[in-house]
Amino acid sequence: MTMENNLNQKHTLSVLVDNEPGVLSRVTGLFSGRGFNIESLCVAETMDPQVSRITLVTRGSEQIVEQITKQLNKLINVIKVIDFTGTEFVEREMALIKVRAEASTRAEILRTVDIFRCKVVDVSLQDYTIEVTGTAGKIEALLTLLSHLGIKEIARTGAIALGRSKKEGPLKREGVKE
């Protein structure tokens, strides 16, 4: 009776935690201490200033992710853990990309920006800084297209996510424990 460990599926977890010093360290320490992996992580306050939301992307078999969820719930400062996998949810990442922009390529970059519905947020004679939001796939695609033009620097967030609301029901308030 052993555990099946073959699957290595991506899971996006939303973790509501007490907004207190040291809480992030408890969460990340749990992952490093138990050998779980974190692909990306985003943290910010919710509407309730006493509560923060950590959005965390991890990979593992069903059994590993079950352990991750249980271990997170066991932390005293964790209020709620939601695993979005298998549910309807919206997931977005954001990247700032500084791309070399010479006279010959400026127009092409702007066209690409247009196609991807992103924005140029800083301009110089040598480069554009582009702000893009979307799924990881969209950002990857944009990076591929821009890479042959010469990407100088990028800064990228992890994923943030929210469950899709039932269209008929009232919106759920954030930070409320069910």
Partner: peptide, 8 residues
């Protein structure tokens, strides 16, 4: 967390 940690 003790349940299904190492054995099904």
């Amino acid at each position: 967390t003790s349940i299904r940690k190492s054995v099904n």
